[in-house]
Computed example of a mutant assay.
Amino acid sequence: MVSTEQLGKPKETSDILQSLFDRAFQPSGSGKRVAVGSPYRSTAIFGPQGQRLIPTITQEMCGCTGLSACLVFMPPGRIARPHFHARSDIIVMVLEGFAASLIGPDLEPVFHGPGEFIYIPEGVVHVAVNLSTQSRLIAVEARTDPKFNEDVVLSSEYDERASEIVADLHRMFASGELEIPVHWNVGEMGPFRFADVEEADLLPQ
Rank of each mutant, 00 (worst) to 15 (best):
81 R>F: 07
8 G>H: 10
123 G>Q: 06
113 G>P: 00
11 K>Q: 12
166 V>N: 10
19 S>K: 15
204 P>F: 06
130 N>V: 09
189 M>I: 14
155 S>N: 07
42 S>K: 08
156 S>G: 05
143 R>F: 14
2 V>G: 00
55 P>F: 04
30 S>E: 03
113 G>K: 04
169 L>F: 01
146 P>N: 03
41 R>K: 13
123 G>C: 07
117 F>T: 05
67 L>T: 03
81 R>Y: 06
121 P>C: 03
7 L>H: 08
71 L>W: 12
83 H>N: 12
82 P>S: 09
11 K>A: 00
89 D>S: 07
83 H>C: 10
124 V>N: 00
126 H>Q: 13
85 H>L: 12
155 S>H: 06
196 D>M: 09
24 A>T: 07
16 I>N: 01
134 Q>F: 03
153 V>F: 05
31 G>T: 02
79 I>R: 15
149 N>V: 02
45 I>P: 00
38 S>G: 04
38 S>F: 08
140 V>I: 14
152 V>K: 10
2 V>L: 12
104 G>E: 08
13 T>I: 14
31 G>I: 02
151 D>T: 11
118 I>L: 14
19 S>N: 14
44 A>H: 01
14 S>D: 09
57 I>V: 13
7 L>W: 08
58 T>I: 01
31 G>A: 04
199 E>V: 11
167 A>Y: 02
78 R>G: 00
127 V>K: 03
40 Y>R: 15
108 E>M: 10
105 P>R: 04
163 S>I: 02
76 P>A: 09
189 M>F: 11
42 S>Y: 02
122 E>V: 02
100 A>P: 10
76 P>R: 11
145 D>T: 09
195 A>Y: 00
72 V>C: 08
162 A>G: 07
166 V>T: 14
10 P>M: 09
38 S>T: 14
111 F>R: 02
79 I>K: 15
74 M>Q: 13
124 V>G: 02
124 V>H: 01
130 N>A: 10
151 D>W: 07
116 E>H: 05
76 P>I: 08
8 G>K: 11
50 G>L: 06
67 L>R: 05
60 E>T: 13
203 L>Q: 13
61 M>R: 04
52 R>T: 15
19 S>I: 01
141 E>K: 01
13 T>K: 14
158 Y>M: 04
148 F>V: 06
52 R>Q: 15
144 T>C: 05
21 F>D: 03
149 N>E: 15
104 G>T: 05
172 M>I: 00
92 V>I: 15
163 S>R: 11
57 I>P: 01
52 R>H: 11
92 V>H: 04
180 I>L: 11
64 C>I: 10
191 P>V: 07
58 T>Q: 00
132 S>F: 05
36 V>F: 14
85 H>V: 04
188 E>Q: 10
187 G>T: 03
193 R>C: 08
98 F>E: 00
82 P>I: 10
128 A>E: 09
171 R>Y: 00
